[in-house]
Computed example of a mutant assay.
Amino acid sequence: MSELAVSEYEILLFYDPNAPIGAESLGYAKGEGYALRDVDILKNKFTGMQLEELADRLHVPIDGLVNKDHPDFERYKDDSFSDDDWIKILQKNPQLIKQPIAIRGHQAIFVKTPSDLSRL
C-alpha cells in the first residue's frame, strides 16, 4: 500500500522553500496553472516508508535521495551508512534530501529546472 497519496491529475511537489530551485519550481508550477499539491520538506516530516517509496519511484537507492552537494553533507561524506541509517539521517536533516521531487501518477522525477515539470 502506498504511503504517498498521488494522482494522475495533480503534481505532488516536494521542495525546500529555502533552496532557489525549490522556490522557482513551485512558482513555475503555479504560474503554469498545474494542478498542484506542494509539500515543504522542512515542515512535513517523512516516515521511513515514505522515503523508501520515494526512492523506489525515482529508481534510486535510499542514498540516492541524499543531496551530496549540500554543505551539511560534509559531516557524513566519509562514513558508510546502511539504508536504515540514511533514513534516520534524512528524517532528522530534511535539508539533505535532494529536491525538488515531483510525482504525477506513476512518474517521479528529480526536478533540475522548473520546466522539467512539463515532462510529467
Rank of each mutant, 00 (worst) to 15 (best):
M1H: 10
S80F: 09
Q91H: 06
I109T: 06
D72C: 00
S2K: 14
L120Q: 12
D79R: 14
M1C: 08
D84L: 09
P71V: 06
D116Y: 11
D116E: 13
A23M: 12
S7G: 11
I21V: 15
I11D: 01
F46L: 10
L58H: 10
I89D: 01
F14C: 06
D40C: 13
I11P: 00
I89S: 06
E10F: 12
D63H: 12
K88N: 07
M49T: 05
D40W: 09
A55D: 09
A23F: 10
N93K: 11
S118H: 08
A35S: 15
K92M: 04
A55Q: 08
G33W: 09
F81M: 11
I11N: 00
S7E: 06
P17K: 07
I11H: 01
G48Q: 11
A108D: 04
P17A: 11
P114H: 04
L65Q: 04
P94I: 07
L13S: 03
I101W: 04
F81S: 02
D79E: 13
K30T: 10
H70K: 07
D72A: 13
I101G: 01
V66N: 03
S115E: 15
I97C: 05
N44T: 14
I11Q: 00
H106L: 11
K112C: 02
A35L: 09
D85Q: 07
M1E: 10
A5Q: 13
L51I: 10
D72R: 10
Q91F: 06
I41S: 01
G33M: 14
G27T: 12
I87Q: 03
P114S: 04
N44E: 15
K112H: 13
H70T: 08
V66S: 04
V66L: 04
D83W: 01
I89K: 00
E24F: 13
D79S: 15
L51P: 07
L96C: 07
I103L: 07
L96F: 08
E32Q: 15
V39C: 09
Q107P: 00
Y28C: 08
E3A: 07
K43E: 12
D79H: 13
N18M: 11
A29G: 07
K92N: 13
G105T: 13
Q99E: 02
L58T: 05
V60N: 02
D78L: 08
G33D: 10
E8I: 03
D84C: 00
A35R: 14
H106R: 14
A5S: 12
D38M: 03
K68P: 03
I103S: 04
P100A: 11
V6K: 04
A55G: 09
A55H: 09
G27F: 08
P100V: 08
F110H: 09
I62M: 12
N67Y: 06
E24H: 14
S7M: 03
N18D: 12
L65G: 05
K45T: 13
S25H: 03
V39T: 14
L65W: 02
A19W: 01
E10K: 14
D78R: 09
L51C: 06
A5L: 12
E32K: 15
L26R: 10
K88G: 03
M1R: 11
A55W: 04
D40G: 11
S115M: 12
D16G: 09
A35K: 13
E8K: 15
P71H: 05
G105S: 06
